[in-house]
Amino acid sequence: MTEKILDPASCFVIDAEDQEDLFTQAYQRLLKEGLVADGFLDQVIEREEDYPTGLSSQNLGADLPNLAFPHTEGIFVKKDRLVPIKLLKPVTFHSMVDPQVSLPVGFCFMLLDDKADGQAKLLSQTMTYLSQANPSELKELFALTDPQAIYDFLEKD
C-alpha cells in the first residue's frame, strides 16, 4: 500500500476539538515536514465545506469508526503523501455521499498529491486497500494510538 506515499513522520494521532482544530494541527505538522505550502490550511478547510469527505464505514465491517479523506488542490502540496490520522475523539464531518448527513469520524486519511487530479488516484488506492482488508485487521488498525504503530501496520501490507 505504500509506494513511497507513506512515511512514519506523517502518521499522526490527534486530539482535536473540531474539524478546524484537526486541520490546524495536521497542517502545522505537515508544514514543519515540508509537505505542504502556505495556504494549505485555508484551502483544505474551504474544500471540506464545499466537497465533504466523510464516509460511513458500515460497508467495511461492524464497529469500525467512520472515515474522512480530506484533501485540497495540488498547488498547495509539496510532496505526495498519504497521511493516516487517528482521532482520539470523534470529529464531525459531513458525508461525501449525502452532505446533509453528519458523521462522527474516528480516523482520517489526508490525501496529499501535487498533481491537479492526483487525489482521485490516491483515494482510489486507499479505498481499494480498505475494501479488501479483513474487518478485524481494520479494527486493529483503527484502534492504534501510536503513530509508529500505525505506520508499521500499514507498511506491512
Rank of each mutant, 00 (worst) to 15 (best):
P104M: 09
L6T: 06
Y151K: 09
K89N: 14
E48V: 06
I14F: 08
K115Q: 15
A120I: 15
L87D: 05
I45F: 00
R29E: 00
H71Q: 03
I85K: 06
P104I: 10
G54F: 06
K86W: 01
Y51H: 14
F23R: 03
S95C: 08
D21T: 06
A120M: 15
G74P: 06
V101I: 14
Q148A: 13
L130P: 05
F76G: 00
D114L: 03
D21A: 15
D15Y: 06
K89A: 09
L35I: 07
I85L: 04
F93S: 05
E73W: 02
P135A: 07
T72M: 07
I85F: 07
D42W: 03
S131F: 10
D63F: 13
F109V: 07
A116L: 12
H71T: 08
Q125R: 12
T145F: 00
D15G: 00
R81G: 04
R81K: 14
K79P: 00
K115E: 14
A143Q: 15
Q19I: 11
Q25W: 00
D146S: 12
K86E: 01
L64F: 02
K89C: 01
Q132L: 13
P8K: 12
P135Q: 10
D38C: 01
E20S: 13
D18R: 09
A37E: 14
L123D: 10
